[in-house]
């Protein structure tokens, strides 16, 4: 376990470094328009003003100095957006509760729902229920988030007033928090449920033919016991690994569309705004956050793996 943690940590550091370097080069150095000082100074600035800003922000320094300074700022929380002038870390911190609420809630929903849907489709394979579920998953996978969101807001929110139209309420008011998140959770989950349930269905259908399932039946277990104890448990590995990665994506600001449609001012919304305003400093920080989440959840997933299948040893 110690070996696993040390290795993971080393991988995490290496990956974050590589990602930060690539993103830095892409966003800051190769930025269309060149020197960000010009952008910062505004359209009417004189060359002298641009130069002053350039010196102030260090854009005249060698690239590697700029890189280390930028990273330093990101990690000590003194990084400021060139556009808004806000502290980037506080901006992300402000968005995190919203994004975490959205991601964790939706993550639990899509994970559990796809287990139910996938299992049901597998045990009814080839029959009517399976076909209906197949069609529904296809619809789920192909339904664009902004479209589904818009429909929900219009019909369930605006027309029928069943749900709030948009916005986020902090967890300090649990009922309202839940109330405001139901539609975003659903919207975000639909795509994942479609994909996950399909994968689980085929994994289960493979597992059913395993010899140990036959052994379980020969032992006198009921169909239900065989399904729950022997088939399902052995079929979870693929979707658990996907789940870790997808959840990391969403926490790292990946739910841009869902957050925008429902005006949830989370990390995804922040990313959307930064893209619109060429706010490269903020974007860089968000990308680092995503990378961090992916690596961290990847490690957690591996621990889960070892728990699900004792043949897998933590390396």
């Amino acid at each position: 376990m110690a070996r696993f943690l040390v290795r993971r940590l080393a991988v995490m550091v290496g990956m974050l470094f590589a990602i930060s370097l690539v993103t830095f080069l892409l966003f800051i150095v190769a930025l269309p328009g060149g020197n960000p000082a010009g952008m910062l100074a505004g359209r009417l600035a004189t060359p002298a003003e641009v130069h002053l800003i350039s010196v102030h922000y260090g854009f005249d320094k060698p690239i590697w100095v700029q890189y280390f300074r930028t990273m330093e700022h990101i990690f000590d929380g003194t990084s400021y957006s060139y556009q808004s002038g806000f502290n980037v870390l506080s901006e992300i911190e402000a968005g995190l509760p919203t994004t975490l609420s959205l991601a964790l809630g939706a993550g639990v929903i899509w994970f559990l729902t796809s287990i139910v849907v996938g299992t049901l489709a597998a045990i009814k394979a080839g029959r009517y229920t399976d076909r209906v579920l197949t069609v529904l998953s296809m619809i789920g996978v192909s339904m664009p988030v902004f479209f589904l969101g818009a429909i929900l807001i219009y019909y369930a929110g605006y027309k029928a007033s069943l749900i709030p139209i948009s916005g986020y309420v902090p967890l300090s008011n649990p009922a309202d928090w839940l109330w405001h998140l139901i539609a975003p959770w659903f919207t975000l989950s639909v795509l994942f449920i479609g994909i996950y349930s399909r994968i689980l269905r085929s994994t289960i259908l493979d597992t059913i033919n395993e010899d140990f399932v036959r052994t379980a039946r020969a032992k006198g277990l009921s169909q239900r016991q065989v399904l729950l104890r022997h088939i399902l448990r052995n079929s979870l590995v693929p979707i658990v690994s996907l789940w870790g990665l997808d959840l990391a994506q969403v926490i790292g600001g990946g739910a841009i569309l869902t957050e925008s449609v429902y005006s949830l001012h989370g990390v995804g919304y922040l990313a959307y705004q930064s893209v619109q305003h060429f706010d490269t400093v903020t974007l860089l920080s968000i990308v680092m956050l995503t990378a961090f989440c992916v690596v961290l959840l990847g490690a957690i997933v591996e621990v889960l793996y070892a728990f699900l299948d004792p043949r897998i040893r933590l390396q």
Binding site: E210, D211, F212, R214, T215, N234, D309, P310, R311
Partner: peptide, 8 residues
């Protein structure tokens, strides 16, 4: 016997 017991 390799595959007849549940590995987990």
């Amino acid at each position: 016997p390799m595959s007849s017991l549940n590995p987990v």
